[in-house]
Design a protein around this nucleic acid. Sequence first.
DNA 1: TCGTGCGTAAACAAGA
DNA 2: CTCTTGTTTACGCACG
Length: 599
Amino acid sequence: MMQESGTETKSNGAAIQNGSSGGNHLLQCASLREGRSNGETPAADAGAAELVHVQQQQALQVARQLLLQQQQQQQVSGLKSPKRNDKQPALQQQQVATQQLAFQQQLLQMQQLQQQHLLSLQRQGLLTIQPGQPALPLQPLAQGMIPTELQQLWKEVTSAHSAEETTGSNHSSLDLTTTCVSSSAPSKTSLIMNPHASTNGQLSVHTPKRESLSHEEHPHSHPLYGHGVCKWPGCEAVCEDFQSFLKHLNSEHALDDRSTAQCRVQMQVVQQLELQLAKDKERLQAMMTHLHVKSTEPKATPQPLNLVSSVTLSKSASEASPQSLPHTPTTPTAPITPVTQGPSVITTTSMHTVGPIRRRYSDKYNVPISSADIAQNQEFYKNAEVRPPFTYASLIRQAILESPEKQLTLNEIYNWFTRMFAYFRRNAATWKNAVRHNLSLHKCFVRVENVKGAVWTVDEVEFQKRRPQKISGNPSLIKNMQSSHAYCTPLNAALQASMAENSIPLYTTASMGNPTLGNLASAIREELNGAMEHTNSNESDSSPGRSPMQAVHPVHVKEEPLDPEEAEGPLSLVTTANHSPDFDHDRDYEDEPVNEDME
DNA sequence: TCGTGCGTAAACAAGA
DNA sequence: CTCTTGTTTACGCACG
């Protein structure tokens, strides 16, 4: 408890000394990726990815050859007439089934090949896969090739027989084809064609067995059943009730070749989505890393704010990151060498790069925090050294409100910061000072003498007084909120479109569709709403010197209420989930990284 | 240009 | 004496 500041004081000096040292392989990897992903198009995304792509192409070739071989075998063994002239339904059926199986096999082979390749890339250090991104190593099918190539493959399988195939039941392969295949360019129709492929907007892979299990456990909720319609991909059969749905499911979607193939295709869909997500995450991390790398160049402006490095989303990585990063000086004061900086300050809400170097983040960050915000983005901020877009006051309040007794000692507040935000595991002297400063400065923080010493509590009335001030008094905030809202919506839409289309490594999705950012933006909206609602309901309570009119800006947003009580849910979650195995929050981060760096 | 809000740095004091 | 905690002041920056 007590030794923190001791080390922290030293850390400044040590940090400076370590400015250019430290094995930051993570940074290097990320910067490598970043360097290649500087291109405007995601396709330029890069080295390792390109290698993977090449490998995929090779795998595809292999798959094609296998397909051809199998087709030839079928023709030789079963048929004497050329395939394309074969019009006997039974034979067709058989052939389609066989080809589906062949297709599945090819997919599996491709997966294996690609997986092996990814592994080898990993071993060679050519490809960095972050442990926090589970999808990547397990999702061998990279987006680059899948949509179109897969489409071709599938078409090869089904083209000759799709008509007959679909006469029996007008779903299956055709719809699936478009679903699985919808490539970046064409066919947004796939979005429409298969609106039920997702459950609550989330695609998921369910094997038939799992389905039966899950619906046994939850009698009338089934991922494949909703709104009286069967949600099996491509099937929109109307089922009046759950029982009829079950009948339908068992009869129409029994375990057969077609269902299996559909399932596999759906798996591919999901894999692509996951891969897309992983890539977007990676891109984000690379962007952040890139900025941090620049900011930590010798004598460069430290830029401890904004987005700080660490390509890590995993615990282990976050643990490692402080070591791997050059510890920046704690004082970002003078914008010393903008030349080496290049542009760029990133705001979490907009991910825009702007021109001049700022030694602090803009007002975009000065947003009161809600518990939901923290809860939603908790994991993100825990692991990514990204400056949380909230004011110290908001964070302090949050920390205090999360405590069981709504009161914390200073040290406990420190611990909360370090526990909840990877960012605050560095530069302890700076932010701790800021915390103390804020505690003293703001009337909303009340120091209460305790038996053990003193604890800090939040005067909600005072705090709420501040909020209308912040929002009404700072129109930029409102604008920012609105812009974040404006962002959020199309972004989510973009993300959804991206998801629906299964591929499309759009930069927009990368930078904007990031769910975390979306959460953030929406959280900010919520916060704004809460503030505005509060303001509206307490107009008479507006702080002196402020015109009531200021509080009535029609910034509206959403209906979710936001009050301290709202924090209860997330709070318990937060407080119980806070102990990452990697660190003990009681004497954490302040300067260990530095010391380790020194070693 | 000015006011405001925020972050950062630092000086200082009191107490353990 | 060192360290933590708390207060206060000053300054810089962004923004409207």
